[in-house]
Design a protein around this nucleic acid. Structure first.
Lengths: 336, 336
DNA sequence: CGTAACAAATGAAACGATTCAAAGACGAGT
DNA sequence: ACTCGTCTTTGAATCGTTTCATTTGTTACG
């Protein structure tokens, strides 16, 4: 009783064949009421629990879906992850979450892991170049859905938000409220960030005399934001931008901390500030933060839906769903 | 080539026995240089990837550790989870994270799941009464470590933070800064929350004329905090508490949002506010939030260490590690 | 040259579930 | 009593890996 009982133990105990026990578990209708009861009783008495490894081995596939995100600590991703989990649970699957931390080797590590686990499918916000690996996976019947990244629909499906449009919305809003010398803060090596910048630059070209300066940050965290903010504070006031667009809210909150720390810079009077993602904490910031809202629940849910579509079609049909972001105006970009 | 190659395919391709391939993977020293190279070449050519299910089945145990938290969206837990993941990775294990959402049935669901997966061990912040299930698991050789909850060391190990002390520290600080009519906000049905309240009450009894009112919240989220905050705003100013102690920072941020929304209540002049957890966002709040800091990284890391100890000792030795929380004073509780 | 000692390679058995062709049980119809 | 059809049950084969007792190959030494 100390060790775990197997289906064979249950069969012996209930005096039936192993196949019958299996049927009770998987096709209850095939089994007569009497034996079903007897088997269930034995299962309860022995405390039998299915061995998922054995089941998977036989099935050749797990009921697991792999999800690789750039940072689980980032509310944007944790929200997407939660939505994906809920949707997957409804389909009887489990989501395994891996955090790449924007590190290509960690990303590769998780891909290896998921491949060993024979996951049903993969949802990924890629860091490195993973297209070859995705091709390999597809050949092997493991569909992939890119998350927060537009896919070539020849290869796989994707759910994303129009980052260029989001960048445009943010910059346009800053320009519309009278700011001209803008700064962009973000890790531009990340594709989404680069797109947001591109959108912002487009908005800037539409307005005469507007400029945008790019400040690269070491990551997309609150800490990285604080570092950039400190540099801004050190500058001669005349050299400071009139408005700062951060590629996510964590960065923006970090920048805000630095700027407001010494009370020499006022937000939004001296410098307007806008973030991206509209995380829950944006509204509670020192100065409530304007932001670009992304439909995280829809992203997570749709990712799972597309994965199911891929599976149903045998990995032949791909679809790229693009959501549109939304400007949320708060005090940090109030009147010029 | 479309389907996944098995170890047998590799063996055939490299013209060796399956056992040899297995040895190349698991005991490279037992294999001669020549064959090792040949096998590795075949592995690369066939794109062989280990089938983890088969390996687990044979091993009788997985390299997976289950972690069940109350809410992954809560930075406290995501930080603990990340630390645990890092520590587990160093030991060659993977952490599977389940979010119970403070729902006993979801918690049970994840426990079932983890048991089917034959996890190496379980880390859990319990919601419901799980002690019997933990006993069952222990009998079956699956050690459990309670996270953020003190364990009876007769049964299992635990890592926790002294919640009563934390509650005491928070309330004492409010009292020390001259506040007398306190309010406590939290979901008191959660044990940690109840302990924090108890500690706070202890501090209150030490000071003449001090009182503490308990406001139960529907959950421990920003939203729940906003609801409580709205009720406070609706009250006659004379009826409002002088200081509010929230059982976590999310709640506190929510309360802060409500109180500062209409600018009728000033923090900390009219109402002082202190939270719990000291999440990254606490410092960036409208009014930087005082809080009680918990050593999340140490919690996660130690949890994995204790799990390893349990495994080494065959589940006989248990240890309860209790960390001490720390008061972090910011503007939200500034001078009386 | 014989043999002991060691290294390397072998391949069948085992892990625990699912599947499926085959056998068994039972009742109805003739 | 016999056959047919339906419902239930059986148990061997299978999935892919690891393990380990055994065989095969090689070297060293007397």
């Amino acid at each position: 009783m100390s060790q775990t009982a197997s289906i064979k133990d249950v069969a012996t105990h209930a005096q039936v064949a192993v196949g019958t026990v299996s049927n009770v578990l998987n096709y209850p209708d095939r089994v007569s009421q009497r034996t079903k009861e007897r088997v269930l009783k034995s299962i309860a008495e022995l405390g039998f629990v299915r061995n998922d490894a054995a089941r998977q081995l036989r099935a050749g596939q797990s009921r697991t879906i792999g999800l690789i995100v750039l940072d689980v600590g980032n509310p944007f991703f944790s929200s997407v992850a939660r939505a994906a989990e809920d949707a997957a649970t409804a389909l009887g699957s489990v989501v395994l979450v891996g955090d790449s931390g924007q590190d290509a080797s960690r990303e590769a590590h998780y891909m290896d892991l998921f491949q060993e686990q024979r996951v049903q499918g993969l949802l990924i916000s890629p860091v490195g170049n993973v297209s070859e690996r995705i091709d390999t996976l597809r050949e092997r019947g493991v569909p992939t859905v890119l998350v927060d990244e537009l896919a070539d629909t020849e290869r796989c499906s994707s759910v994303s938000v129009d980052d260029q449009e989001g960048g445009y919305l943010a910059a346009r809003h800053l320009l519309d409220t009278g700011r001209r010398r803008l700064a962009f803060v973000g890790t531009t090596s990340i594709r989404q960030v680069a797109s947001r910048l591109k959108g912002a630059q487009r908005a800037v070209t539409e307005v005469n005399g507007a400029t945008i300066e790019v400040l690269d940050s070491a990551g997309q965290t609150v800490l990285a934001g604080r570092q950039v903010g400190n540099k801004l504070v050190e500058r001669d006031p005349a050299e400071r931008p009139e408005a700062v667009f951060c590629s996510n809210d964590l960065l923006a909150l970090g920048v805000m901390q630095s700027l407001t720390m010494l009370r020499t810079v006022r937000i939004p009077e001296d410098i307007a500030l806008i973030g991206y993602d509209d995380i829950d904490f944006a509204i509670s910031a020192v100065v409530p933060l304007s932001s670009i809202r992304q439909p995280t629940e829809a992203l997570g849910r749709t990712a799972i839906e597309l994965l199911a579509e891929e599976q149903d079609s045998g990995g032949t049909k791909h679809r790229a769903v693009v959501f549109t972001p939304e400007l949320v105006v708060r005090q940090s970009t109030a009147g010029a």
